[in-house]
């Protein structure tokens, strides 16, 4: 994969998506289908990303104990409504500690 193409296309695409919102007529947002799409899309994407990042290694399922321990601890922190930064730190510390064992 050409990483430079990816970096520049991602950067250009993301900026274009932001600018587009300032240029299109605001009433587009009133369409219920558009509202629903915007509500559901991030939920689906984020849920799938959680799974992929937690257990995928390329095309394989990899149940890495240390990674899952860190992720599990972070999930408890999320459930307990810990701040975002605390969640991230807990995940790293627990995974790193579990890996030392």
């Amino acid at each position: 994969m050409n990483l430079w193409v990816l970096v520049l296309a991602t950067a250009g695409g993301c900026y274009a998506l932001k600018v587009a919102g300032y240029l299109v007529p605001a009433r587009l947002l009133d369409a219920p289908q558009v509202r629903r799409l915007v509500e559901l899309l991030p939920v689906a994407l984020l849920a799938a990303l959680v799974v992929v990042e937690a257990v995928a290694s390329g095309r394989h399922l990899q149940w890495d104990a240390a990674r899952l321990a860190g992720f599990g601890a972070a999930a408890v922190a999320v459930w307990r409504r810990a701040p975002f930064l605390a969640v991230v730190v807990i995940a790293a510390v627990v995974a790193a500690a579990a890996r030392q064992i």
Partner: peptide
Amino acid sequence: PAKFGLDAVVPAAFLALLAPRL
């Protein structure tokens, strides 16, 4: 980066972004 547990950070971050929507 796995030595520092960074592989667990990414799914945790996505989960933290997802949780308020649920």
